[in-house]
């Protein structure tokens, strides 16, 4: 589903992502774990075409990273902070993106129902809680119903209840057959969630395996 070969992005301070290769199969729920500055966000930004790599090759569902217009139909990217048009309503934000995806209005209604946003459709995003904003952000990204979803720190800044809510959504998407990659710097949280863990440390991949193997290994205690 996702094939990454020698993907590299190095910033000035010798940080970033050093040659990294891995494959993700269809319907996997992969957690990318690492401390701040490990290269997790860099990896997701590259995969979502918002950052250009220095070198390497990426194909998602057979589409090369350079074919952005094709790729956006295959992926959804939910960033750490909900980047929405604050001065407009929930419905406006969803409608705008639905129009850009050339989707019917019924899809907006459907998304609002699926994400329990119908009661807030006329509310300005500015007046929503962080958790609700994140829900709108996820709903917006999933409007075109893509097979692959990237989440960058989806629970960052959320309280316990909202974190549980996001994890419930991740499980739902996974059960629906979506391929999911998400980043976190709190591996304990995703022990029972992810089907696979990739650990990045200082821009290099140091672990690729099941959560059980990871938590049994000495690596977890060394890093955390």
């Amino acid at each position: 589903m996702i094939e990454i070969e020698n993907l590299t992005k190095v910033y000035k301070e010798n940080r970033g992502l050093f040659p990294t290769s891995f494959k993700v199969n269809k319907a996997e729920l992969v957690a990318i774990v690492g401390h701040n500055g490990a290269g997790k966000s860099t990896l997701l930004k590259i995969l979502s075409s918002s950052l250009l790599p220095d070198s390497g090759k990426v194909t998602i569902d057979g589409v090369d990273l350079s074919s952005r217009l094709e790729l956006v139909k295959k992926i959804a990217f939910v960033s750490e902070t909900p980047n929405l048009y604050d001065f407009f309503s929930v419905e406006y934000n969803l409608k705008l993106f639905a129009k850009l995806f050339n989707l019917p209005h019924s899809r907006v209604e459907e998304t609002m129902n699926n994400f329990n946003l119908s009661n807030f459709k006329k509310t300005k995003v500015l007046n929503l809680s962080k958790g609700l904003k994140q829900r709108v952000s996820i709903g917006r990204a999933l409007l075109p119903d893509p097979p692959v979803i990237f989440f960058d720190e989806p629970t960052s800044g959320l309280d316990f209840e909202m974190t549980k809510e996001v994890f419930r959504l991740l499980k739902e998407f996974h059960a629906a057959g979506k391929t999911i990659l998400f980043t976190t710097h709190r591996p304990e949280e995703i022990r029972n969630l992810a089907t696979r863990i990739l650990v990045l440390h200082k821009g290099k991949m140091v672990f690729d395996g099941t959560p059980d193997d990871y938590f049994k290994s000495s690596l977890h205690s060394e890093l955390y």
Partner: peptide, 9 residues
Amino acid sequence: LLVSLLQTP
């Protein structure tokens, strides 16, 4: 917001 818009066609 531009990053979000670039996630569309």
